[in-house]
């Protein structure tokens, strides 16, 4: 805007000129007289506001109350077992409802083994799928494939279990199991008799179930990598894979770890499908063909049949342990994902 140092003449002239070409004011009816009177007599709504805000707060607080109540209830109901066995509960292998001798180690072992197997299978696949969808796939395939992998997440656990019983278990028994025993029997992981149900089958079905979680969060994290980073790598003459490795994976690795841990959280607590194919036997076996039990599956299987207060209390203590472990695992995962997708830029190395 350039204006001369003496302003009076140009500005005033402009104002006059503007006014002379103005459209005449439209002829409009007078405002209905009732409007101001109506509005001025309306209440300020302060009472309603306070009531509404209070209601919202109450509902939000109910979430807090529920969690506190769950913890208190679980603690209270597992008192018997806590007193009887103390912390040693988690290192004992006995599980004998008849004599009232309980220990959670077989279930912890089963949960760890199946979750670990699931991660071993799901993580590489999920990463590849995420890379394919985000960086390699032609645009027209991107949405359908993303949708299909999300669809995997919408299938109920019990349906996975049903499918596993009638498709995966026979396949395991007749084809995959013998194959593994023949070529990888030397590892000692595939010994003993193979009935199709056991740790490995549970691990496989778990891997299918946690894959969409890991894949979709990995995609989200990869999507947060700035395009300039990718272009920088390409401009240096990197091949597509080198670009993915240097820019995309390097920048999103913390978020990917978060996605994997979130998948772990899901695997630890997954119940129905595992219960249906793991064989339900509280034993610690180094063979992946052996039937086992997880923390979640033993509860699902024995809770309604638990006779005796100590038995029930031991099962609830297992539930409490599962609750606390998943809280820790999920909190770590959320923190990591959050750090990448909305937090400050991750420190470069």
């Amino acid at each position: 805007m350039s204006e001369p140092s003496r302003v009076e003449v140009p500005l005033l002239n402009m104002q006059v000129a503007e006014q002379s070409r103005r459209a005449p004011a439209p002829m409009v009816a007078k405002a209905p007289a009732g409007i101001r009177r109506f509005l001025h007599t309306q209440t300020s709504g302060a009472v309603a506001d306070r009531a509404f805000g209070g209601l919202m707060l109450t509902c939000a607080l109910s979430i807090l109350a529920i969690v506190v109540l769950i913890v208190v209830m679980l603690l209270d109901q597992s008192k018997l077992s806590l007193h009887a066995f103390g912390l040693k509960f988690f290192f004992r292998t006995a599980w004998d409802p008849v004599s009232g001798d309980f220990g959670a180690l077989p279930f912890i072992y089963g949960t760890l083994v199946t979750s670990f197997l699931a991660l071993c299978i799901a993580v590489p696949l999920a990463l590849c799928v995420a890379i394919f969808i985000m960086e390699i796939s032609p645009a027209f395939l991107r949405t359908p494939i993303a949708f299909l992998t999300e669809l995997l997440a919408a299938i109920p656990s019990v349906v996975y279990g049903l499918w596993a019983i009638f498709v995966l278990v026979p396949m395991m028994r007749d084809h995959l199991g013998p194959f593994l025993a023949k070529y990888f029997g030397w590892t000692g992981l595939f010994g003993g008799s193979n009935f199709g149900e056991g740790f490995l089958t549970a691990g496989i079905i778990l891997s299918i179930m946690i894959l969409p979680v890991i894949s979709s969060i990995t995609r989200e994290v990869m999507g947060a990598v700035p395009i300039s980073q990718k272009e920088a790598a390409l401009a240096l003459g990197a091949t597509r894979w080198e670009m993915i490795r240097m820019s995309v994976l390097r920048n999103s690795r913390i978020g990917i770890v978060g996605a994997v841990i979130l998948g772990l959280g899901r695997a630890l607590g997954e119940t129905m499908a595992v219960t249906m194919v793991i064989g339900n036997n509280p034993q610690i076996s180094h063979s992946l063909f052996a039937p086992g039990h997880t923390l979640a599956s033993v509860i699902a299987n024995e809770f309604t049949e638990a006779t005796g207060d100590l038995y029930l209390s031991a099962l609830i203590e297992i539930g409490l342990a599962l609750f606390l472990v998943t809280i820790v695992v999920n909190s770590i995962a959320r923190l990591l994902v959050w750090a990448v997708t909305r937090g400050k830029p991750v420190a470069a190395h």
């Binding site: 109540l69 769950i70 209830m73 679980l74 656990s157 959280g265 630890l268 607590g269 997954e270 119940t271 979640a296 509860i299 699902a300 809770f303 099962l315 609830i316 539930g319 599962l322 609750f323 998943t326 809280i327 695992v329 999920n330």
Partner: peptide, 10 residues
């Protein structure tokens, strides 16, 4: 993130 089986117990 609470496992569904734990919600059952709850």
């Amino acid at each position: 993130g609470v496992p569904s089986i734990v919600m059952g117990i709850a």
